[in-house]
Structures are given as C-alpha cells and as structure tokens.
C-alpha cells in the first residue's frame, strides 16, 4: 500500500495544479482566439469596423443582441510610446463605449447617451492622465453599443458611426 502513496500524491498535486492553471489561463486563451476570429472576420486593428445588423447569419460573438448596433475596434499598444485616441460620435439614444482587456475584463465603460465621447487609451503601466484610461493589457478590444432595435434605427446608427474613431498615435511629449 505504501508504494502507492507517492504516485497518488503526485496525481493529486498535478490535478490541482492543472485545474488552477486551466481556470487562470482560460479567459486569456478564449479572448486571444476571439481576437483572432474577429480579425479573420474583418474587424480592423485601430479602426471601428462598420457592422452589419446582428442576425443568425452575421453574428460574430456569442450572445450578441439583435437590438443593438455593435462597432468593434481591436487594439495593440505594444509599440513603445503608442496610445489610442477614441471617439464615440453623438447618438440621441442609449450608447456606450466599453473597453475589454486580454483577460476579458470590462475595465472601463463610458456612457454617452445624446453626446459625443472622446478619450485616450494608454498602455499598461502609464501614469494616470485627465481624459485618459490606462489599459491593463497591451491588447484588447473596444466596443460601441447603440440601441437600435429596428432596421431604421440601425441605419441611423450606421450614419452616427461615421463619427467614431479609434486611431493609434504616438504619445505627445
């Protein structure tokens, strides 16, 4: 019996370690795959991609709402001195500008019902600045939601989206 204690302890330790590691890594792996999938489906890097209305045939992300306009911008702030200038154009109804890091966390959301919103996104480790948000990771995705529950409202949201920007710039010195 004694000779099985060692292998059994190894089995349990390995199982616990792999269990914890899998849980820890899962969000990052899923987000990494999602970013790759979005890139393959035409979601631009450092630009908001004009969306199609969400239908079973056009859905890109799990649990998308057919009642919302979604515009996505992937970002990568790994180049030294890079930052992102982000603008969400005005929209008379509900709209929000949401930031997600490489761990899938929604680290900031700005509501902009009836008004335009402009903000800078800074790389991890940056000092806090007025009018800026520091990203916890170099890569992530920005998502604009606009309430557009019918075709006419969706078309209007597409027009409003022409004022959206997601532009990579060098930090001002």
């Amino acid at each position: 019996m004694k000779r099985w204690i060692g292998p059994l302890a190894v089995l349990l330790l390995v199982a616990a370690g792999v269990h914890a590691l899998t849980l820890h890594r899962a969000p990052a792996v899923i987000m990494d795959r999602a970013l790759d999938a979005l890139a393959k489906r035409g979601v631009a890097l450092h630009a908001f991609t004009t969306p199609q209305r969400v239908t079973p045939q056009t859905q890109q992300v799990v649990r998308s709402s057919p009642d919302l306009y979604y515009a996505l911008c992937r970002y990568d702030l790994s180049a030294p001195g890079s930052q992102l200038d982000v603008t969400m154009g005005g929209w008379p109804g509900y709209q929000s500008l949401a930031f997600f890091d490489a761990q899938t966390d929604n680290f900031a959301t700005l509501r902009g019902t009836g008004r335009e919103v402009t903000v800078r996104l800074l790389p991890p480790g940056s000092a806090a600045q007025k009018g800026a948000i520091v990203s916890p990771s170099t890569k992530g995705v920005i998502l604009i939601r606009r309430l557009a529950p019918d075709a006419a409202r969706f078309d209007a949201a597409v027009e409003a989206g022409r004022a959206d920007t997601c532009r990579l710039e060098r930090a001002r010195t």
Binding site: L23, A26, P27, I30, M31, A34, V61, V62, R63, S96, A98, F100, Q103, T104, N106, T109, V141, L143, R145
Partner: peptide
C-alpha cells in the same frame, strides 16, 4: 470568469 469568457464574451459590468 471562464464561463463568461466562453458564453458571455464582451458582456458589460
């Protein structure tokens, strides 16, 4: 976190 990443990716707070 893992389940939401799979089934509710890009959900708001």
């Amino acid at each position: 976190r893992a389940r939401v990443a799979r089934h509710g990716l890009l959900a708001l707070a």
